[in-house]
């Protein structure tokens, strides 16, 4: 018993998807979180609400709209086609785009909270010491808000690993390209291959437990501000 080649391919694909997605999420989510934490603009509410939408929307809604939007007649699909990239559904990068959108709140919110918890004071002090905003971000915000970034990275990664509904709707179940672990488990269960399903499912339970354990040990609430 153990993992078949198809299972290993699904595991590797899932880790790759989660890795790429987390990197992109930290890159795009940080400026958004920064803006949300510091702005006094009236747009703060609407932008925050849009970022949080994936938490409340069922994956079927997100998957359905992504399928239409990224399809050959949708706005995103027309854009990618005019850039010569083809369309995104059924591709690895299509899953990446969907995952970035889907996991965004899990990355933005911890970072936003951490930056808000810092307050104005450290940034004002840094400014009087003539630190540029860029310098200020790297030498004040990042070290001080480190737990927030750590939480964001871990949650973004774990949430992408745990994704199912959106992938099912725009993935097309292609081995090595879009057949991630959750879909592979679903297929095993459908085909009544319960032993194979157990191996992967148990691995997911252990993985998720370890991730959350890491999160709570590295980041105990007592040390948070």
């Amino acid at each position: 018993m153990g993992f078949a080649d198809a299972d290993l391919a699904a595991i590797w694909l899932t880790l790759r998807l989660a890795g790429v997605t987390t990197a992109l999420l930290l890159l795009t989510g940080t400026p958004i979180a920064w803006w949300l934490a510091r702005t006094r603009s009236g747009w703060k509410g609407p932008v925050g609400a849009v970022v949080a939408l994936p938490i409340v929307l069922p994956p079927t809604v997100i998957g359905f709209y992504l399928l239409l939007a990224m399809g050959p007649h949708g706005p995103v699909g027309q854009l990618t086609q005019s850039l010569g990239l083809g369309t995104l559904p059924f591709t690895f990068w299509g899953l990446v785009v969907a995952s970035v959108f889907y996991s965004m709140p899990f990355v933005v919110q911890p970072i936003q909270n951490a930056i808000e918890a810092l307050g104005e004071r450290p940034l004002e002090v840094a400014a009087t010491l003539r630190a540029s905003p860029w310098d200020c971000f790297w030498s004040v915000v990042l070290p001080q808000a480190r737990p927030g970034f750590l939480t964001a990275g871990i949650l973004g990664f774990a949430h992408t690993v745990g994704e199912f509904g959106v992938v099912l709707m725009i993935g097309g179940n292609i081995p090595g390209v879009t057949r991630v672990v959750s879909v592979q488990i679903y297929d095993h269960v459908e085909a009544l291959e319960y032993a194979e399903a157990h191996w992967l499912a148990a691995a997911m339970v252990i993985f998720s437990f370890l991730v959350l354990l890491a999160l709570y040990t590295l980041n105990p609430t007592g040390r948070r501000k």
Binding site: L67, M70, L168, G172, I174
Partner: peptide
């Protein structure tokens, strides 16, 4: 070039949206 639907309805959805 296969994309596989979970059932025949999803397969039709892939084709009817023009994605396949």
């Amino acid at each position: 070039k296969f994309v596989q639907g979970e059932n025949i309805s999803q397969t039709f959805q892939f084709a009817s949206t023009g994605n396949a």
